[in-house]
Design a protein around this nucleic acid. Structure first.
Lengths: 212, 212
DNA sequence: CAACAATTGACAAGAATTTAACAGAAATCT
DNA sequence: AGATTTCTGTTAAATTCTTGTCAATTGTTG
């Protein structure tokens, strides 16, 4: 299918998908790269270049069909699959992610939640019960879990990641503030919130510097 | 101070800071770019190049002093300032961010939370009360608020952002799934969680494609 | 204290990414 | 139906980012 698409291009696809979804909702049938470029504030050239990494989705003189392009990008992103996922760490962040219904619409199915705090075990998020950590290995194996969401403090994350890998997890969505060391066949996507906040801090202070 | 440091460089600084913090905790006094490059799995050249954007923090034959480098990067990122922030949206995500104590350590002080749901008003997160949206404008003005964290659904986000800007907010940490259109003097950092999840999905499905 | 080893900062070379330009195909207009 | 306009896909140019190299400087060792 695809061989070596750059990370930068992949990173932009979800945003294209979002704008195309909005256009679909407005019943827009077709759109040109230059119209889309105005909406999205990127160059039309970049849009065409990005899309052409995957093949010609448009037509000269016409542009791109919104529905078709939307579904092609969905396919590229693997959103036609269903993924079973679990959340490890049933604190506020874990609950927030577990309760986010839009994930379900995209094919991400919440199968279980885990926590080491006995006080949380048995509580529910959308009919999914929080289970104790001891049950984790067997649960992954017997419920065909693809993705684990790690919403626990960094201290425990490395060890839990090891357990996940040993039990055949395919991917980890990592919110713990640590870099996980896993085999190359396990996909990791990091969300380091404090890094993001620091970037914001940089922008604030750098703006103030340049405008005082 | 700094004129045009690339986004890529800034994006790497928080990760440098994290590793340096760990070294500090281990009482490591000095480190060379090549040692750090092994730890962080990047090239030594990149580390030196990145740091030299801001001046020579190291010394030939010696390397970098961990404490000094840590504090210099902190300064670059603007972490020596204090920032007052509020959270808009007191759902699980808002509560999770409000309860995250490490932000306080970095100088980000939670001053208030807001929600439109009457059922949430009056509840507390770390001694901070959730207030009704009507109080937002006056609160920002009279409490010297720098940053607003937006943890509300996208439908309301655009309108709330407008109110924030009108009342002099400096920066928005945006978790709503929409691009905000604000004046250039307002800094925005987006955290689009579903984009991140889609990238993970791409990696899973692309790995499976290439290894079936 | 001289010789040697370590290591930066600077610069050059090499890659990757982004933007521009344009030929040619399809749609639209008259 | 022919002329004109609109657009893509593609190639080329420009820009940005990353990596490699090495002289110069500092620390260390015998």
């Amino acid at each position: 299918m695809d061989k070596d698409i750059s990370r930068a291009v992949i990173g932009r696809l979800p945003r294209y998908l979002r704008y195309l979804g909005e256009l679909k909702d407005k019943n827009v049938e077709r759109i040109s790269s230059s119209e889309l470029s105005v909406l999205m504030k990127v160059t039309a050239s970049q849009i065409r270049q990005d899309l052409n990494n995957f093949g010609g989705f448009g037509q000269q003189g016409y542009g791109y069909n919104v529905d078709y392009l939307y579904s092609e990008i969905s396919k590229i992103l693997g959103l036609e699959h269903q993924y079973n996922f679990i959340i490890i760490g049933a604190g506020n962040l874990g609950k927030a992610l577990g309760g986010y219904l839009n994930f379900e619409k995209r094919g991400f199915i919440l199968k279980g939640m885990f926590d080491k705090d006995p006080g949380l075990i048995g509580t529910e998020v959308r009919d999914v019960k929080v289970m104790p950590m001891e049950d984790l290995p067997s649960f992954i194996r017997s419920n065909d879990i693809d993705i684990a969401v790690l919403t626990i403090p960094k201290e425990g994350a490395v060890l839990v990641a090891k357990v996940l890998v040993e039990n055949g997890i395919k991917a980890i969505w990592n919110f713990a503030h640590v870099d996980l060391d896993v085999p190359e066949y396990v996909q990791v996507e990091n969300v380091h919130l404090s890094d993001s906040l620091m970037k914001l801090s940089y922008n604030i202070s750098s703006y103030m510097e340049n405008n005082k």
